[in-house]
Every structure is written in C-alpha cells, then in structure tokens.
Amino acid sequence: MTENPGIASVADLLAHAHAMESEAHERYLDLAEQLELHRNVEVATLFRKLAQIEQLHVRKILDRVGALELPHLSPWEYRWLDDEAPEAASIGEAHYMMTPHHALSLALRAEQRALDFYSSVLEGGGNSSVQELARELAVEEREHVELVKTWLAKYPEPGADWAEDPDPPVYQE
C-alpha cells in the first residue's frame, strides 16, 4: 500500500472525502445519462442507483463537515493515489452494450480505490484526529466494497460475445 502522508488535517481529509464522493456521484450520473442515451436501460438504472447511494455519502460527509471551514483545492492539488478522484468509476471503461456485471465490476474497482485511499492516509501517519477520521471513513468504504461485491455476485460474467452488435456504426456528419 502506498503511503499518503500528505493529508495533514481533518479539514484537509474532509475536503478530499467530499470531493471524492461528489465526483463519484457526478460520474455515476454521467454514466447513467450515457447509457440512457444509448438505450441500455438496465445498466443506466443501475448507475442511477449507484449515483443515489453516492449522494447519500456526500450528505454524510457534509454532516461531518458541519461548520468546519474546508480549504480550497484546485483539481490537481488533491493528493489522490491515481490520476483522478479514486471513487469515480473509470469513464473510459464504459461501453454502450455493457452489462450489469461490467457496471458493478467498474463500481467495485472504484470503491476499492476509495478504500485504498483511506488506507493510505492511515498508513501515512498524521495526527490522531486525522487517523481517527480516516479509520472511520475506511470502515464505511469497506462496507461499500462488500455491498457491491454482494450485488455483483447476482450478475455472473457474460459470455465473450457480449459486445457483439450485428449492425454497423451509423454515419453522422
């Protein structure tokens, strides 16, 4: 596990947590809209549900923030482990014919990255209140991971021909 010593205060960690949950929420909404536009209703509905769950997480973070003043961070000032906020499902992995199995696998990877992030904060040391908060958030995130795993178990991996489309792409402009 990569250490993440950069998170120095509760406000800083909450800023990250809030950004992470917000981005996750927005990303699921984006994916839901994409799949709706491509008439993949089943997966779109699933992404909408995931978005709703993330919205609840955003609210929970905001409850923790309370009256605390959070620092302003530019997108590139967040100390994520990877290229972007960890809980945002990787948008480049979407496919118009993706199945719930793919969608939930995508979500699982995102939740796992979120858990990894909090774990990295824990391992990075920092003051006790940061540690305490990171531990709580990690616990919650682990619950999410387990939840998605259970959900995913209901959708076995589809056959190799899942993306087969008998029709060609459409000429546009």
């Binding site: 950004a19 917000s22 927005e26 923030v65 009256a67 003043e69 959070l70 620092p71 302003h72």
Partner: peptide
C-alpha cells in the same frame, strides 16, 4: 461549509 470545495458541482454548472 466552504462552497469552494464543491468542485464537482461547480464544474457541473
């Protein structure tokens, strides 16, 4: 809270 941190929503606007 400080609304500046709501970057995803600010961008979405």
């Amino acid at each position: 809270m400080n609304t500046q941190t709501v970057s995803a929503s600010a961008a979405r606007a």
